[in-house]
Design a protein around this nucleic acid. Structure first.
Lengths: 245, 245
DNA sequence: ACCCATTTGTTCGTATGTATG
DNA sequence: GCATACATACGAACAAATGGG
């Protein structure tokens, strides 16, 4: 499991960042659960085959993120360690899916706009290019940590006022209900991964080079008519998806 | 869509690498399909707010990967642009899922071993920790490009000889069939994303900082008895998953 | 054949960031 | 904290190849 030389030089990614990424990941995977702390700097330096200064840079970055806290004479304590599980099923809902794993969830409406459907959005929603759609930009937190940022499109005619409804209820499900759609199902989900764009880095409180899990999803009503197309970006360090067949 | 200053300084990730990652992604998304080439270096430099040298470093990295080819006086041509779609369903199979999108698929058995089940593997396969399992390390190509690297575990008693069978048929499905298991289904899939480890970088022909889509999957026979647990690492640039409910 | 704008390729120099001991 | 070596990034040129008038 340990393995030496897990980092590479002259690749455009500084060693301290590669090491920070690996330690963050190891923490998320529960590698240091027994002690609740990261191994000593000298041990890490040996493991990664780098100078202790380099390890210190990596730990400083993680401390900056609030993931670890160095205490002189004791070691580097792990402050936070979470990975939320997000089930993708026919009845996928954000709040219900995350709700039982977090004490508190929040939803923020960053932006709302009415616009003409792009080719991509139109094809997913079954609209002609140029028909009007409502776009919502939303940010979701769990226990005060940003978890996902999503862009959603809705047919404008059918769901006029969904922005206000979402702001009020902080939930797509409840906003749909207020607009007369009692139930909906997840039809299709496409999952990819990519480096975060700068705009998402800020909102999701990530550092450059961070990874996003991206879910492009289409929801329909019970008659199979598309009601929502969304592109959700999740901080890959903080979530995993599960698909149960 | 364009957007200025999409890169950040002093983050431990070199600008040229951030830019290379964004251009690779843009190519994958079809952003330059009209011309079949990347914008001129001077234009990219302006877009990203960096010196032309920095853009050239990024393009040199992409040329090294075989994604683009620079021609003096003409521009930088896009050589390769692919993203395979990998459906995750109750009947998920690698070869059948990828097969119709690639002209040629190959499967390589990198390693085979018999070992005691770890806590994780045991819990997925319904074995006690310490019971014997067979581990296969496999690498899959589509059209001569590596697509995924997978580690699979099988109950040793029931599937003795599966390594040989896999080497012969280059297919899990056919190897199962030879050992008397005519059919199996995908029970659960967990999807995460992470930076590639060094060992995977080499086999998947990726550069450091590259992203993996990771699928932890459990297959059962038709009676619901676990027959396989696997951790597959896909090059995120080259694939996407789809989940149809 | 020639000129020209465009685009990639190359060579200086200089400043800052990264990594080591 | 210091000294050293190398990678990264910028700026200003100039050279070489391409395609079109």
């Amino acid at each position: 499991m340990a393995g030496l030389k897990q980092v590479q030089r002259q690749t455009g990614v500084a060693l301290w960042r590669q090491i920070a990424d690996r330690i963050r990941e190891a923490i998320g995977n529960g590698a240091y659960d027994e002690t609740g702390m990261v191994p000593p700097e000298t041990v890490l330096a040996l493991q990664f085959g780098v100078n202790r200064h380099t390890v210190r840079s990596a730990l400083a970055a993680l401390a900056q993120e609030g993931i670890v806290r160095a205490v002189q004479g004791r070691g580097t304590l792990i402050e936070r360690k979470e990975r939320l599980n997000f089930p993708i099923t026919r009845r996928t809902r954000f709040t219900a899916g995350i709700g039982d794993q977090a004490r508190e969830t929040r939803a923020l409406l960053l932006d709302e706009a009415q616009e003409e459907a792009s080719a991509e959005v139109g094809s997913w929603l079954g609209l002609k290019q140029g028909e009007m759609v409502i776009r919502l930009e939303t940010l979701r937190h769990a226990d005060r940590r940003p978890v996902s940022k999503a862009t959603s499109w809705f047919p404008a005619e059918r769901f006029a006022g969904i922005g206000e409804a979402y702001r009020k209820h902080q939930s797509i499900t409840k906003a749909f209900a207020e607009l007369g759609l009692a139930d909906y199902v997840r039809a299709t989900t496409e999952v990819t991964a990519a480096h975060a764009a700068t705009a998402d880095l800020a909102d999701l409180e990530l550092t450059p080079g961070a990874i996003l899990l991206i879910a492009k999803a289409m929801n329909t009503d019970l008659d199979g008519v598309p009601v929502q197309y969304s592109i959700s970006r999740f901080a890959a360090d903080r979530v995993q998806f599960t698909i149960d067949n």
